[in-house]
Amino acid sequence: MGYSRDELIEAVSAQMPAKRWQHTQGVMESAVKLAEQYGADPEKADLAAILHDVAKYWPIEKLKDVLEEHQSSSELLLYNKQLWHAEVGAIVANHDYGITDLEVLDAIRYHTSGRIGMTLLDKVVCLADYIEPGRDFPGVNNIRKLANDSLEEGLLAGLDSTISLLVSRREIIFPLTVLARNDLIKQLEANS
């Protein structure tokens, strides 16, 4: 990696409002705790958490340009723009910050949508994004409670809350999120 952790923090924090940086710090803290609890690599969890929202506050046109330039999933462009920053974040982490670890890049890429066959690190970063201490939305305390006992149960509750919110707003649901949810249910059933 071409950047030290401190340099990376400085570069990333400069690209977002202070409140979003506080969120990122909460995700970093939560991701490391979850990684330690469930056996993922805490350093990779910290790195992915630092970068997970690096492109969150970029203008929509810039996000679109990066997605088109890197020929990322054109399907993604058909869905909610709130999903775009995750894919762009993985691209930026690789191209601008020299992150080459595919596991870290994928944890950034799938932190909003999930995916089928999520890795341990994917699950840790995605769940940390839901439960970081600054989050305050209906059901978050239940998600936190579930996360204490099961990474998969906590993440399933998080995805359920996202899907329920989108349904209540009559918004389109990104299919990968539904597939990720279904895959988690299969994993939980297989382990019960």
Rank of each mutant, 00 (worst) to 15 (best):
S161G: 08
D149Q: 13
L165I: 00
K145V: 02
E132K: 01
S150V: 09
D160A: 09
D149H: 15
V178C: 07
E153P: 01
A147W: 09
S161Y: 08
E132F: 01
A128I: 04
L176M: 14
R170S: 15
G158H: 08
R169Y: 14
T162E: 12
P133H: 09
A180I: 09
D183K: 11
R135M: 07
R135L: 00
D129P: 06
L159Y: 13
S150M: 08
N148Y: 05
L151Y: 07
A147C: 11
S161W: 02
L146W: 03
T162L: 13
R144Y: 05
V167G: 02
D136N: 12
K145P: 00
R135S: 11
R170G: 11
F174Y: 14
L166A: 04
R169K: 15
G139T: 13
R169P: 07
R144C: 07
L179Y: 12
K145C: 01
I172C: 09
L176S: 13
P133M: 10
V167A: 03
L155Y: 02
A128S: 13
I173C: 13
L179C: 00
V167K: 14
F174G: 08
E152Y: 08
F174N: 08
L151M: 08
A157T: 14
L179W: 11
I163H: 11
L159V: 06
Y130K: 10
L146N: 05
N142T: 07
R181P: 01
A128Y: 09
R135E: 06
V167L: 15
L176K: 11
R135T: 10
L159S: 03
Y130H: 11
I172Q: 14
E171G: 02
N182Y: 01
L151D: 13
T177W: 00
R169M: 14
